[in-house]
Simulated assay, not measured.
Amino acid sequence: MTLDLLATRRALHKIPEIGLEEYKTHAFLMETIAELTADKDFVAVKTWKTGILVMVHGSAATKTIGWRTDIDGLPIVEETGLDFVSEHADRMHACGHDIHMTLALGLLERLTQVQPKENLLFLFQPAEENFAGGMLMYEDGAFGDWLPDEFYGLHVRPDLKVGQLATNRSTLFAGTCEVKITFTGQSGHAAFPHTANDALVAASYFITQVQSVVSRNVDPIEGAVVTIGSLHAGTTNNIIAGEAKLHGTIRALTQTMSLHVQERVRQIAEGVALALGVDLAIELNPSGYLPVENHPVLADELMNFFGNSGALEVIDCPPAMTGEDFGYLLNKVPGVMFWLGVDTPYPLHHPKMSPDETVLELGVTEIAKFLSHKINSN
């Protein structure tokens, strides 16, 4: 089989599915992988739910190099007007995972023409957008003895031109932590506040005081974000609220800083509850969206390799405060993630986001050179 990159991407674009429901996507990938590796007795495949692991066994392996792609879509109504628009209602590959999968399949084809020296693992990972599929697979033992020694991956980036690659030697994506807080007091009549205990006042104190975490507890060189995006309390104007629910997020560029900010948020919430005599329920849920911390030595090697190739413009970029679940795997295995330009005016998660498909051939060709260097050099 010779893989048609354009047709493959367009076929995948038609069938976006939400995390852990990628049934058609899984079937398409399994069929394509089987065709690409039909005569390769050094290739093995195993699955985990809708996830797929493809191991290319090396002839004299001393290590395993991993390449990861995500496979899920988003709950978005597509507005691109393309001939190959999504066939699934309210679903779209608005984050470019169709491009990611096509590149991975292209790399699998190119890098199995001959058996490599080192092992090469391809991870087709589900549920990046909603359930941190990388974490789920790792914690469920899906890798077994196939866990790589180094892990690499990419994400398309609309505001970069095709031919531009951006990354850095530190953090590429922030870690995220969901915050859920409930203050419970005692409701009562607004005219008799002394007979009640106002949970809304407690929530207000907390929201005000938690602003000091970033301004006074975080090194300004590092940066972090604490945002409370939702507050629900009370029922009407003349009843004191007996309960207040808050929902927010923490963002930080290192796992150490994320844990520090989480602890300060918890301490402030506990202090407010104690001072105002309300009950507190707090949930800090980082899930699997840890900071994507590039290994500095491996990132330096990757950036120098692509920089010397002449086909790509390598940009040393600052981190983004958005989250990516590849951070969980990079917390377990050293590796690098990078941006790859796809030149479209619409941002990620936009219903009109439509990558420039010329990135497919270029991406496969240049990334294959890098991975070949990793698995075949002495």
Rank of each mutant, 00 (worst) to 15 (best):
A94G: 15
C95G: 13
C95M: 11
G96W: 01
H97E: 10
H97S: 08
H97D: 05
I99L: 12
H100W: 10
H100K: 12
H100E: 06
M101E: 11
T102I: 14
T102P: 12
G106S: 05
L107M: 14
L107D: 03
L107K: 08
L108S: 02
L108A: 02
E109G: 04
L111V: 07
T112G: 03
V114G: 11
Q115Y: 09
L120D: 03
L121W: 09
F122L: 04
F122K: 00
F124W: 02
Q125G: 05
P126V: 04
P126Y: 08
A127D: 00
F131K: 10
F131N: 05
F131A: 10
A132I: 00
G133Y: 07
L136R: 09
Y138D: 09
Y138L: 14
D140H: 13
G141P: 06
A142M: 08
F143P: 00
G144W: 10
W146P: 08
W146D: 08
W146C: 08
D149A: 10
D149L: 09
E150G: 03
F151H: 04
L154E: 05
H155Q: 15
V156C: 05
R157K: 12
P158L: 14
P158Y: 14
D159F: 14
D159K: 14
L160S: 03
Q164C: 11
T167V: 11
N168W: 14
R169I: 15
S170E: 14
S170D: 15
T171A: 15
L172I: 15
F173R: 02
A174L: 13
G175E: 11
G175V: 11
C177W: 00
C177G: 04
E178G: 09
V179P: 05
K180V: 09
I181G: 03
T182Q: 14
T184G: 13
G185C: 01
S187Y: 04
S187F: 04
G188Q: 00
H189Y: 02
A191I: 03
H194M: 06
H194R: 06
N197C: 15
N197E: 12
D198Y: 02
A199T: 01
L200T: 02
L200I: 07
L200A: 11
V201D: 04
V201K: 02
A202C: 07
A203I: 11
S204D: 12
Y205M: 10
